[in-house]
Design a protein around this nucleic acid. Structure first.
Lengths: 414, 414
DNA sequence: TCTGTTCGTCAACTTGCCGAACGAATGGAG
DNA sequence: CTCCATTCGTTCGGCAAGTTGACGAACAGA
């Protein structure tokens, strides 16, 4: 089943591939030093990789004494990935190469007809991106899509995809996979956003941090130990249900969640009206506060208190290094100071709080990160080949009777 | 650096070892089928393992047609691990074999002198356990200790180890490692408890669940994706600081935490007094409630409300499959119904809530699990040998300007 | 006792990697 | 301009590990 030769060679090939990717242009001798392999083995494998176009020469390294070595680097155009941020109004998509470089980006309005029309739109945009990048469709290795809603990990259906008409009914995963013919990943847009910040934003140096999006709704993405955490139903980070702000016992507040009821867009407007303001949109409230409107300022400070309280709850559970605020309301820098202020009054040692570095592009960047990572895993990852079972502790007391053993399993499972 | 031969053989040896451990008694042919290796290779490696006493024959499998094969099983006595639950008043310790079997257990009072005396006590108990199990000290592969307090991941010092006099000042990790001469793991007792439940208690089938201990203090252990989560400062699960019950803005409530101030032992007693009860201990309150004391019943129902609110907050952040209640107060079954009742009023789809299956032995069992797992990792794990770097996406800069269609990045990153 | 079947081991062959030695390129010294 | 130390890259013989194939050994049932 697993001939020995191929396996070892595969491991070594992947090792070298990893080194070439992460070390940038590198000579064969350097590879031999770092991998511990011998020069000849390295040469042979590199030759293969170059033949398969995974790797390309990048010139010679001159300057030292002795013969100039040839340097090799990863050929980023050996594959492409596509990331999509599918919102209720806008569809953002981008194509990038396997080196992590972003090549082209398309932004357009989401098809208001919803349902299959949106699926069709995603396909169309994807193929246009591939054309823009002058890439054959076969070279597209992975597509990742972030969209509002909770992904049901079992069925692959996005529940609560309220922003797009009749989108929740479709088996989006299957539909799109079938139509694109490419591995497809679907996830919550907040999860994508947190991964975006982890890859290229504020969370680059943090292995434990959260992204809190406050806008029309409220959501949170959690990165713990450098991985996204989804919880058992994919509902981790659904802090809209936190018992904060509104009465958590009122059933009316449990549909969208007490915290969301109070702190999200509608709640903010309602509190502004209650404080004596006119019934306007969220941006107008911020503008009014900037103009010195006392009611608006009070409401925004209160918003800071609510968010601070939520962060306090999150920090008590997760102990993140950093909290990134995003979304239509959360990304307003005016909120930063009240949030920090209130948080400091709730906690003795609060986590750092910052406004998203990527802004509305966070979910898109995150989708790219997911697609890229998946492609790399599939191509060069350790997943497929390790024959090792996870080393979990043996379960319970060995209840095997001593002495002769019962008959072996007849079917010869496998 | 890494000779090829040994590496491949090591991988295969570990593969077979894993199979033998997890499959129980198993014949060589079966091993060959499952591992994909040939019969000869399996024979050779099994011979070696048997010579090194890692594996032993366990009789022949009779009943089938043809020659009876010899079955092999993991020799659990090839190594031993020790788990310790070091509390403020009691010290529980146990020794088990590498098969997960618990062999002997010792419970005694913690040395009230604290500090080095306790360290000495741990050493003494450990060696006595090894003697009881008739194991040479060299065969003890790992010791894990759970104790109250927050482990500082950097220094290895237990901060806030308030229950044991002058214990927080010591570099316990280093002291004990030096004195025992064995790999030693130190962690929070609540973390140990959650791992105990994960191994042999209620959380066996859950990859995402939490253990909430309510007693003198309040703490929570978090298992997400089958791993314990500590957060960036090891303070994950410190739900004592949740803004629940007491005024979270009062600095006096921030030392121990608002939630702990309200819901832990002292808070429970205080609320009972405020409700008209006498100043008694926690067990007396439970007894009074059972006797029909209205004030006590009210206070306990209120305790259920507080805990329910905390679970609501935790569930909103982590989405656990299960919440296990433990600790002096939390493990009282009388609380289960009020907690569930209130939780159902807070949330539409609350997680399951149960009382700890292991009770006060949870931290001890968890320590055993940690020690066992560490020993297995060290012996048969994949950690030491994989030459693969983690396949993270390469960090390319792609700061494309916004716009309907962004220009391709000009610099040709990297 | 015979026979079909399965287990376990011995031999011959293949793969992959390494050490050592050798030709090739390069920059500097004379 | 030539020579040379130095480093790069390749070729050759050898070793370690695994696989296929064949054969003796044990066992159940006829």
């Amino acid at each position: 089943m697993t001939p020995a030769g191929p396996l070892l060679r595969q491991v070594n090939t992947q090792t070298l591939m990893q080194l070439i990717i992460h070390t940038g242009p590198v000579t064969r001798v350097e590879l031999a030093r770092r991998s511990g392999l011998s020069k000849q083995t390295v040469s042979e494998i590199v030759r293969q990789l170059q033949g398969a176009d995974w790797v390309r020469e990048t010139g010679r390294v001159r300057g030292g004494v002795g013969r100039s070595p040839v340097a090799y680097e990863f050929n980023p155009r050996s594959g492409f990935v596509i990331g999509v941020d599918l919102g209720g109004t806008k569809l953002r998509a981008a194509i990038g190469d396997l080196g992590g470089g972003l090549l082209h980006e398309i932004v357009e309005s989401t098809d208001p007809l919803g349902g299959r029309h949106v699926i069709e739109q995603v396909c169309s945009v994807s193929r246009r991106l591939a054309d823009l990048a002058d890439a054959s469709w076969d070279a597209v290795l992975c597509v990742a899509i972030g969209t509002p809603g909770v992904l049901n990990p079992q069925t692959g259906v996005m529940d609560f995809a309220v922003n797009i008409p009749s989108f929740g009914d479709l088996r989006v995963q299957d539909e799109l996979t079938g139509r694109l013919g490419v591995p497809l990943l679907l996830d919550n847009d907040v999860n994508m956003a947190v991964l975006g910040e982890h890859w290229q934003g504020l969370g680059q140096d943090s292995s434990d941090f959260v992204f809190i999006a406050v806008g029309t709704g409220i959501g949170m993405g959690v990165v713990a130990d450098d991985e996204i955490r989804r919880g058992c139903n994919g509902a981790a980070g659904e802090i809209c249900y936190l018992p904060i702000g509104a009465d958590p016992l009122d059933r009316a507040n449990q549909v969208k969640g007490a915290f969301e009821e109070a702190a999200a867009g509608a709640g903010l407007v309602r509190r502004y009206v209650e404080a004596g303001g006119r019934e306007v949109g969220v941006p107008e409230i911020f503008a009014a506060a900037a103009d010195g409107d006392a009611a608006a300022q009070l409401v925004l400070d209160d918003e800071g208190r609510l968010i601070g309280q939520a962060i306090c709850a999150v920090a008590g559970v997760l102990d993140p290094e950093l909290v990134v605020l995003g979304g239509g309301i959360g990304s307003r820098t005016e909120l930063l100071e009240p949030v920090r202020n209130w948080l400091g009054r709730f906690m003795l040692q609060p986590p750092e709080v910052h406004t998203s570095a990527l802004g509305h592009r966070a979910p898109l960047v995150g989708s790219m990160a997911v697609a890229l990572r998946t492609a790399h895993q599939d191509l060069f990852g350790a997943t497929a080949l390790t024959p090792l079972v996870l080393p979990t502790p043996p379960s319970g007391t060995a209840d095997a009777a001593d002495g002769d053993v019962a008959a072996p399993n007849p079917g010869g499972t496998r």
